[in-house]
């Protein structure tokens, strides 16, 4: 760590007569500092860590709410049956594909818009304000608006456009369920990526860009040789945070496709199994798999990003 020790806790102004006295004061100080942290930590342990451990416990139990008395330790039965029943693997694939497509597309669009809105032009503030709106809009509302006013075969604007251009009408959520979900997620997360990348572009040294121009580097070369490497850290943060959020995606699935056509993400599968199928044990196993998947994705992305988080915050 690059922490330079300014030692904020050093007790210079405490008149410590002896070494033991000083140590006692320091220990008291240490506990007081812990006391500041403890409420938050205990609150989180109670509401997230313990429930998670309980989920692991549930996942090792045979437990269907339809047969509440038939509850027993089941070992890894829920996991093996999840794999053999053919629900789990397609769901993992759906989750990963939806996340990957949405994150990459949102990143590309986000980069495009960040570059365009980094320029100075009349009304830039308004353009930026309009651009961030899709991310702010309630996800359930966004999915519904897309479902009915954009994708619908009769009243949807996309199909109106297709009809106007004499193209065949598309029944989006049944013919292209995956694309339907990805479009809405990309639309919602493009502003997210744009904001992060825009912050990166604004931190760019304008002098270097001018020097590159003087040296005769074209726009494309300047972009690939100077801007992109500079943006790397921002791209990584965007990809990490975007992936972790979209891995949990539920709202657009529940509203647009109800998990049909290969869009049954883990969150939706768990919801179906637990709250419609009432199979707590099986659903818990899906919950645990979700965590494992998140950990895999996050460690891949986090490794480099964590340094950034830490570097931004050492005193």
């Amino acid at each position: 760590m690059t922490t330079t020790t300014t030692k904020p806790t050093e007790l210079e102004d405490v008149p410590a007569a002896t070494a033991t006295d000083k140590r006692r004061v320091q220990r008291k100080e240490l506990w007081r500092n812990r006391g500041l942290l403890l409420p938050a930590v205990i609150f989180l342990i109670l509401l997230t860590q313990i429930p998670f451990l309980t989920t692991i416990g549930f996942s090792l139990t045979k437990w269907n709410l339809l047969y509440p008395n038939d509850r027993a330790f089941a070992g890894f039965d829920n996991y093996t049956s999840a794999l053999t029943s053919g629900d789990l693997w397609p769901s993992i694939v759906a989750t990963v594909l939806i996340t990957a497509f949405s994150v990459v597309l949102a990143l590309l669009f986000g980069l495009l818009f960040a570059m365009l809105l980094d320029r100075k032009f009349r009304g830039r503030a308004l353009a930026r304000t309009l651009m961030i709106t899709p991310f702010l809009i309630m996800p359930a509302a966004a999915a519904l608006i897309w479902k009915y006013s954009m994708f619908d075969t009769n009243i949807g604007m996309l199909n109106w456009l297709f009809r106007t251009l004499h193209l065949p009408v598309v029944s989006w959520s049944t013919e292209h369920p995956m694309m339907t979900v990805v479009i809405v997620l990309t639309w919602q997360f493009t502003p997210f990526m744009m904001l992060i990348l825009l912050a990166g572009l604004q931190g760019q040294d304008k002098g270097i860009l001018e020097a590159a121009q003087v040296d005769g580097a074209g726009a494309w070369r300047t972009f690939t040789w100077i801007t992109l490497p500079h943006l790397r850290m921002y791209i990584e943060i965007g990809v990490l945070l975007g992936s972790v959020i979209i891995l949990q995606v539920f709202d657009p699935i529940a509203i647009l496709t109800k998990g049909t056509g290969g869009t049954k993400t883990l969150a939706y599968l768990l919801y179906e199994r637990a709250f419609i199928g009432l199979d707590v044990g099986q659903a818990a196993a899906y919950g645990v798999v979700t965590v494992i998947l998140t950990i895999i994705v996050a460690t891949i992305a986090l490794k480099s990003v964590f340094k950034v988080f830490m570097a931004g915050g050492s005193r």
């Binding site: 942290l37 998670f52 996050a298």
Partner: peptide, 22 residues
């Protein structure tokens, strides 16, 4: 650092992993 990673890892905990016991 440990405390900070604790907080960050809870942020990344999927809601699906905690909703059943709750």
């Amino acid at each position: 650092e440990n405390s900070l990673s604790f907080f960050i890892s809870t942020r990344f905990m999927p809601l699906a992993a905690i909703v059943l016991p709750l």
